[in-house]
Every structure is written in structure tokens, then in C-alpha cells.
Write a protein that binds this DNA or RNA. Structure first.
Lengths: 343, 343
DNA sequence: ATGATCCGTGAGAGCGCTCTCACATCGGGT
DNA sequence: ACCCGATGTGAGAGCGCTCTCACGGATCAT
């Protein structure tokens, strides 16, 4: 009973062809929507397919077409980060949606450890997938150097570290966003604008900081005093804000480089008895739909449309897979300020 | 060297064999760790593999072995639920971890719509994967009826609706957990114990309610008055608690069937000016590591070890794939009360 | 010595599909 | 009448791998 006694073998294309009274070649033509098939043959084959419950064998198909119809989505981040930061949930969700729309199967690869990296490399090199979307923002991460050697189309999210030559990537205008946020605070008449940065081993964090700097005209010593790394976590944001309040008691505005950190910063400001936005104006980054509208007060934030970014990545990858001529290797998407109550 | 647009074709087993001076068969034996190979041949083949950077073609291998080395993990839930409820993040994380440990590739399938279901069915039937882990708790969900017809080993999380005959599943003792929670409240001397349930189209919610009922000995009319559906969401938990406070002003304890809802219930109790646990004792369910320890006050909760459940599912599935004799089709894992401050 | 057994090996037959090529058949222009 | 191209079709050659089978040579018991 428990032993799967020899189940009826899956019908093959040969069976379908026989039942339809045509050759395997014609049956194949019908399945692949080739134009040169007579209506009668088409009809006979589709009927046979239905009658037999035929499903093409993907392995056989992949063997000859050299296409699997699947792409890998690879995240290289510590495990807690991926699962606790809603930003990643949003990325996965967007990827699932965009790939489904392109009728491409998504294979999720999470790389936390060196063994995971080896496994992922084997997998990507093994021809399991036609291409990959890679999220590996950290300096010193070995994933990009592995993937760039692979004979596999890859599109990166943001700017990975190392040489960019030959890479395809979709980035956001993080520096422009930083400028936007900071200039908004300046236009509000704020004089002492500090910033909570992300980890500076990520380009996005570096660029947002650069935006703040260019808008404030901060000197090197200003940077040392007026900025603090919040590690892109909520708790980090709280701690960084607390440290800045200590160091710069007369601060009247802060640009926080992610909404999650901004939520932590708001906690710290509340704990310190500062009113937002009256005493301290706060601008976040991401405009994350699960965070920004729900903080107290609702967070003014720089929108980076993650769903849009992933969609561009997918479109780009699909084009690479089709070997269509590519317009640009590198896309930079705009950011826009979304004003709410915190600034 | 050669035309850049035509990348060097991937070496085949034939190439490896030629370079090693053996036959394809012997090379294959080495790759598949067959015992009957001379040390010299083994050495020669491994050297050739390294030298050529050979990677077996998975499609060809899958074609003959009828094994892909991948399994699908299928979630059938509305999109917002999957991404906003930390329970699912935890499930995905556990699945990724357990499957990686078993050296099986994970293919994540998210089913939100009828089209998604059709796509998933095609995918599962297409021989892309060797088996599947299915999370589809809702009554009326068509996924289980689809998957049970597939000639594919499947292990279900919890009890799906419909006939259980022939299904493999790993469940938690939800009813026992409900009893545990409620008896704990009784032992505290609480007299009016209400409950916030999950959506009753899920067996887990029904079972937890049954546990509460058996421990309280509630009559049918009690059930109508003392229970409220919180839909397994935070906001639903808040609303349900508010409704119960309205209806049963003298309640002194509540069993909330998930931690996420319990967080909402705590909000409602705070809003109503009830102290926890002095005025109202609260017990949650899940003991979710991201929630239970962090509420105010920290939440007493019934632990269901999700990671353990998924691990059991994976072990079970791997055993099915190996066609090993299966001990039991159905496993029920124990639950245990974790006391904190809320009760 | 003779046979029986084992061990390492290679030849070769597929797995189920796609795709090229050659071949009929059928108009329609000259 | 002729040839021409367009059109639908089938035969068959692989894609890269695994696995059965047969075979020669070494090892063992008799």
C-alpha cells in the first residue's frame, strides 16, 4: 500500500503522436506553437494531449533547447537580516510577482555561509537555471566574483563592489535621494542636520551619505561628528540616534538612511523627549509601505520603488535570455520625496 | 582566441573521459562514486574534471535518472498574509535551512490566485521537482486536491481539509496546546476565560478552539459569547479583543490562538485600561521568537516549534524520495507552554 | 592443472525531446 | 504545358548522461 507500485508511466510525445496519428515532429510542432501545422493535425494532437494527460518532460526539453525556464534569485546576507528586515520580504515578493508575470520559474537561493556559497555556485554552474538575479551589496562578499565568472546572464541589484565592467545592474539614485531628503530639511529652515547611515560596506549607504554631504556641504570633521552608522536595523537606528543626541544636543533634523532605522530613531527621540517634527525633523529612506505610513508620526521618506527595481531587473534579464540587444547595461532609477508628518 | 560571442562550449563527460584516457562509463562511475573503480582511473578522472572545470549537465542527468534533486515548497495563502505575517518568514527560513542541510534544492512556489495555481500545477506535473512540501491550511483551497492527484511525493504541513487517506503530513498538537494554555489560566484561578481564535477555515484554529473548549467545558452558547475570530492578523486580534471586552466586561483571562493576534490583543487591553496580567491574563500561541519575548509584558505562549516541524517534513519527504519504508504517514508534534509575564 | 569467481572496464542502448532536412503536394505565374 | 515557391509532413540525428551487459584478466578453491 505504501510502496508506490509501478505507477502508469507518463505518456511521452511518441504516445501522443501515435494517438493523434501523426509523427512526433508534428506533435512537437503543435506543442511549440509552430505556424506550419494544418488545423486538422493541430486538433488531433491537442485532443490526444488532453486524452492522455500529457505533460512534456522538462529534462528532455531542457537537454536539447539548453533552456530551463527558471532563473535563480540569490540573496547574500546574514540569515537574521533577510528574515527580520521587511525590505527583503518585499524584494522576494516583488521577484515572485515579476517572474511569475514573465512566466519564469523562480528558484530562491539564500547564501548565509561559505558552504551555502559553494552550493549556490555548483547549482548555478550546473545548468539548473537560465540566469540569475543577484542581491549581494556587501563589500568583501565573494558571491559577485563567483557569479561574474559564470557563463550565465546575471543582473545585479544595486552596485556590487569590485569592477563594474561588463555587469548588468539596476540601481536606485541613492545619492540623489540623499540630496532630496537633506534639501527638504534645509528648506524647512533646519540648521543642524545629522544623519544615521547604513553600513558603509554597502554602496547604497555610502551614496546616501554622499547625498547628505553634498547637500549640507559638510567638512570631514562634520562627517565624523554628525553621522552615525545604524547598520540598517531598527535597533541600530535607535542606538545611532541616541548617540547623535548625546554628541550633538542641538540637532534639529536627521536624515535616516532607511525606514526601519528611522522607526528606531523615532523611538530614541521619543525616549529623549524630543518632539517630531517640532524639535527634530526626520526623513527616512525607502518609503516602505509597511513602515513609513505607520510610524508615529507618519514618516516623510524618500521613495525607492523596490517593486519597480525588481521588475526592471527581470525585464533586463529576460532580454538577456532572449539575446536581444540590450539598451544599457546599467539602469539608475529615480527616487522621489514623499512628504508626511515627520518633516 | 576565439569568437567572443561564441563562448567555449561547456565540456561534456566525453571530454573528461578523453582527457583522462578512460571511457565515458568509467568517468561516470567516478562522478557517481561507484565503488568499482581503480585508484588510477579515479585519480585521472578527478584531475581531468578539475582541469576542464567540468560540471555535469543536470538536464541530461535528470533525463535518465528521473531525479532532479530539487523539491518545491508551495504556499497557498493570500499575498499580504505571506509577507506580513512573520510566521511565514519563519517557515520559509526553516525550509531553506532544512533543505540545504539535506542537499536538496528549494524551489519556492507562491500561490495567490487561480492562475498561480494553474502555473504551479503545470510546474509540479512537469517533472521539475522530485517532491513537494505543501502549506495549504484553508478549507476550500484547491491546491491539496490538485497535489494529491499528482504522481509526486508530497508532505503537508498541518492537516489539509478533505480526506486524509494516503496523505503524509506533519502536524502540531494544536488541541493539546489549547488545553495547555487554558489549564494554565485555570490554575491561575481565572474564572472568565475567553479566547481569540484564528480563522475557523483552518484546522489549526479549530483545534486550538477545541482545546480551549475542552478545558473550560464551555457550552454552545458560551462558545458563541466567549470566542471571537481574529483572523490570525495583528489588527484582527486587536479588534477581536475589543469586541470581547465589550461583550464580556468581567473577563479575567484570554487565550489568543497566535502570538501576532496576541500582540494586537495586548494593544486593545492597554487601550481599555486593563492591566496585564493583573486584570487580564494572556496566553498566546506559537512562541514566535520575534514576537513573544518582545511584547509588553513578554508573552506567555504555547510553543510550536516551526523549525522542527519543517525539519520533520523534510526528513519525511527525503525518505519518500528514497523510497524507504515510512514509519508513519502522519506525525503529530507536541506543544509546550512557555511561561513569561503575561499570565 | 581446471574451472569458478571477482573486478575493472568499454561498448552501446536508450531517456524524451527539438530541429534540420528532404520530400511530397498544391496552387499560380509564365 | 512548364517551373516555381509555398506549405505540411515524417525520418532521423542528436542533446549529455546513466546503466546494463559482455569481456578479458587476475584471484581463488579444488
Amino acid at each position: 500500500m505504501s510502496v508506490p507500485s509501478h505507477p502508469r508511466p507518463r505518456p511521452t510525445l511518441e504516445d501522443v503522436a501515435a494517438k493523434a496519428g501523426v509523427s512526433r515532429a508534428t506533435a512537437s510542432r503543435v506543442l511549440n506553437a509552430s505556424p506550419r501545422v494544418s488545423p486538422e493535425a493541430h486538433e488531433a494532437v491537442t485532443a490526444a494531449v488532453r486524452a492522455l494527460g500529457y505533460q512534456p518532460n522538462q529534462a528532455a526539453r531542457a537537454l536539447v533547447t539548453r533552456r530551463t525556464g527558471a532563473v535563480a534569485v540569490v540573496f547574500s546576507e546574514p540569515e537574521p537580516k533577510i528574515f527580520d528586515d521587511p525590505h527583503f520580504a518585499w524584494l522576494i515578493r516583488s521577484a515572485a510577482r515579476s517572474l511569475a508575470a514573465a512566466d519564469v520559474q523562480m528558484v530562491l537561493l539564500l547564501v548565509h555561509s561559505p558552504e551555502d556559497l559553494a552550493r549556490a555556485e555548483r547549482f548555478l554552474a550546473g545548468g539548473h537555471v537560465d540566469g540569475a538575479l543577484v542581491f549581494a551589496p556587501h563589500r568583501g562578499d565573494h558571491l559577485p566574483s563567483v557569479t561574474r565568472k559564470l557563463p550565465l546572464p546575471v543582473v545585479y541589484a544595486g552596485r556590487p563592489w569590485g569592477p563594474l565592467r561588463g555587469l548588468h545592474l539596476v540601481d536606485h539614485d541613492n545619492e540623489g535621494g540623499g540630496v532630496l531628503a537633506t534639501e527638504h530639511l534645509v528648506s524647512l529652515g533646519r540648521k543642524r542636520i545629522v544623519t544615521v547611515t547604513g553600513p558603509l560596506d554597502e554602496h547604497s549607504a555610502v551614496d546616501r551619505l554622499a547625498g547628505w554631504r553634498s547637500a549640507t556641504g559638510a567638512s570631514d570633521e562634520d562627517v565624523a561628528r554628525l553621522t552615525e552608522d545604524g547598520g540598517f536595523t531598527r535597533e541600530g537606528g535607535r542606538r545611532a540616534m541616541a548617540a547623535l543626541l548625546e554628541r550633538v544636543p542641538d540637532l534639529d533634523a536627521v536624515f535616516v538612511a532607511s525606514d526601519l532605522m528611522a522607526a528606531g530613531a523615532l523611538d530614541a527621540l521619543r525616549d529623549a523627549g524630543r518632539r517630531v517634527p517640532q524639535d527634530v525633523a526626520v526623513v527616512g529612506f525607502d518609503d516602505h509601505p509597511m513602515i513609513a505610513p505607520h510610524t508615529t508620526p507618519p514618516l516623510t521618506s524618500v521613495r525607492q520603488d523596490t517593486g519597480n527595481q525588481v521588475e526592471h531587473m527581470v525585464t533586463h534579464l529576460v532580454r538577456l535570455l532572449r539575446e536581444e540587444p540590450i539598451r544599457a547595461r546599467r539602469e539608475v532609477l529615480p527616487t522621489v520625496l514623499v512628504p508626511r508628518d515627520s518633516a
